[in-house]
Amino acid sequence: MPVSSLMTQPPASPKPQSEPPVVEMPPRKRAIIAVGATAGGSALAGGQYPVIDAIKRGETPEPRRHESVMGVPSVLDIRDFQLWYGQNKALHGINMPIAEGKITSIIGPSGCGKSTLLRSVNRLNDLVDGVRTAGTIALQGEDVYARGVDVISLRKRLGMVFQKPNPFPMSIFENVVYALRISGERRKAVLGQACEKALRQAALWDEVKDRLKGSAMGLSGGQQQRLCIARAIVCEPQVLLLDEPCSALDPIATLRIEELILEIGQRYTVLIVTHNMQQAARVSDFTAFMYLGRLVEYGRTADIFQLPRLRETEDYVTGRFG
């Protein structure tokens, strides 16, 4: 387990250090940059990362949220959100607004709670035994964890795509219109139109328009994942949640999905979890860096990659740590 291995690392510096003042740098104009992952320099000596050290001690330091993200109108507002799996606390006081109509990526080492956070938004964690939450996640001002919330209709307002493509064992057409079908839509014309629109938006229409009745299991991995995206956007969700959508795909399919995400980002709010730093840099407008269930730094993607305010973030995005 990633967490336990981090926990069992040798303790930080023997000389307790007071947190040095963090140099706040002014936000810069946005520019997309490609980040070369400089693998190599592994964990540095303790004391280099005061924030990480504090987190490892179990504290929840105030994250560095850039002013640039706090000002924008948000569709989703995560406020002091905490989550426990039984006795284990997986999320500690997460505060982050998700900008409307933008692409926000969440990065962080394995096991830091990215998927957990994503699955908290559409309450998919409800299925897990022994999950407790505190705080709020407000979707357009309404807390999704408020009492009496209709989880089914909440999930219909959110789309989700998983790490591994999960087409249902039905025809391509039935896959795409599944969300409409379960809402009771029967009209052929409506379903047909919705299917075509979603498939076009998912850049899959031309490849499958002649085999809509064919089984979805016969598509390639990349096509399957685009099908899952089409399926997720058929109801025009307010937020599209993507959990490492490319990690099971080859580089070419990954590129196509990335292009697609950029395009879909023009219409929808997208929240994407990724392990791939370059992907975060390429596709997202905002980036959140998480560590051990805490939000560490959150700002414009360009700022996070070029002018991070924390040394931890800088070293993580350049691959020197994590």
Binding site: S153, R155, K156, Y178, A179, I182, C235
Partner: peptide, 11 residues
């Protein structure tokens, strides 16, 4: 993922 896939779509 099959079951979660349907639930995430509001099943």
């Amino acid at each position: 993922t099959q079951i979660e896939g349907t639930l995430a779509l509001g099943a």
